[in-house]
């Protein structure tokens, strides 16, 4: 009897202890869980709720309107335009980031030049990445000014007989902002791909060379397949982040002229903080979130495939 009592007492004590031990990891995590709940989960729930109301923040008693805001947006021409612009801007950026990043990484990985020379070039190549979007925006506004140095070079070389309005022309503005974004974003690829290149075992190349493979074949059958997982990860992360780009557009064209550079992010910002249509802005913001999460899902799946 006594022994039995002692046993239950002990096991009770043990289960309490177990609960306590089970809580330890959460103690370490509690500040993070608290912060991320308030800063990520709660706001996403809020923005979804806002998107189903007639007009929050401005109205004292907002009314539930279902998916009316979404319907309105999806039939709105400006929204279509912003979506198309965002996709063009993002897709072109990702493609050219990859081309430039891979090209520079291959150049920097050459065995033909001494280490020191390569290190100096690497620092120069990374520079655009060190600059914040605000600074990149005004830097290019200076260079691309109608009276700026790039127009001077074009005039002098005879490529054009008149000054080009890079950022305020209806035809050019979207291409120009895309170019600026390409310039500022390739180092991210370059650095990662350079690390990837240096991780490919030299024996692979030696063996293939002995078998008589030429430079192009080495690239096609060894370099590219070895880099593929990194390239896929980079492209998907870049796709998500470029889709969110706001600062660069806001500081160069503000979405103009005549909305030719309007992106989903700038449109959403204007809906909220210029037109005070917070509910419509919330619907737009939620659509951007959904698009991003779809790409993120591919990213996670790809990561898992690499891990296996």
């Amino acid at each position: 009897m006594i022994a039995e009592k002692q046993m239950t007492h002990r096991s009770k004590k043990r289960s309490l202890r177990n609960i306590f031990i089970g809580l330890v990891p959460f103690a370490y995590l509690s500040p993070s869980i608290l912060l991320l709940s308030v800063l990520a989960i709660l706001p996403i729930a809020m923005v979804f709720r806002y998107s189903l109301m007639n007009n929050v923040i401005m109205e004292k008693n907002p009314v539930f309107v279902g998916f009316a805001n979404y319907a309105k947006l999806l039939s709105d021409e400006v929204f279509h335009k912003a979506f198309a612009n965002t996709m063009y801007f993002t897709a072109m950026s990702v493609i050219f980031h990859l081309i430039l990043g891979l090209g520079f990484a291959l150049l920097l990985n050459t065995k033909l030049l001494p280490q020191m020379t390569r290190a100096i070039f690497r620092v120069i190549y990374v520079l655009p990445w060190v600059f914040t979007a605000t600074i990149i925006a005004i830097l290019w506004r200076l260079l691309l000014n109608p009276n700026g140095v790039i127009n001077y070079l074009i005039l002098v070389s005879g490529l054009s007989s008149e000054k080009i309005e890079w950022l305020s022309s209806k035809e050019l503005a979207l291409h120009t902002v895309t170019f600026i974004n390409i310039w500022s974003g390739y180092p991210f690829y370059m650095v990662s791909l350079l690390a990837g290149l240096q991780g490919i075992p030299g024996e692979y190349y030696e063996a293939a060379t002995i078998d008589g493979a030429n430079g192009r074949q080495l690239f096609r059958y060894i370099t590219l397949p070895q880099l593929k997982p990194i390239i896929l990860s980079l492209a998907m992360l870049d796709f998500i982040w470029t889709m969110h780009q706001f600062t660069l557009i806001w500081m160069t064209t503000g979405g103009g002229p005549l909305r030719v550079t309007e992106m989903l992010s700038t449109l959403t910002y204007k809906l909220a903080f210029s037109s005070y249509k917070f509910s419509q802005a919330s619907a737009s913001a939620f659509i951007i979130l959904a698009l991003s999460l779809i790409v993120a899902l591919f990213y996670v799946r790809q990561q898992r495939a690499t891990d296996d």
């Binding site: 991320l36 800063l39 990520a40 709660l42 706001p43 996403i44 809020m46 923005v47 806002y50 998500i240 889709m243 969110h244 706001f246 989903l264 992010s265 959403t268 910002y269 909220a272 917070f278 802005a281 919330s282 913001a285 939620f286 951007i288 979130l289 991003s292 999460l293 790409v295 993120a296 990213y299």
Partner: peptide, 12 residues
């Protein structure tokens, strides 16, 4: 969270 657009969080 890394994939959440800043603009989505801005309004809330």
């Amino acid at each position: 969270v890394q994939a959440v657009p800043p603009i989505t969080l801005l309004i809330p």
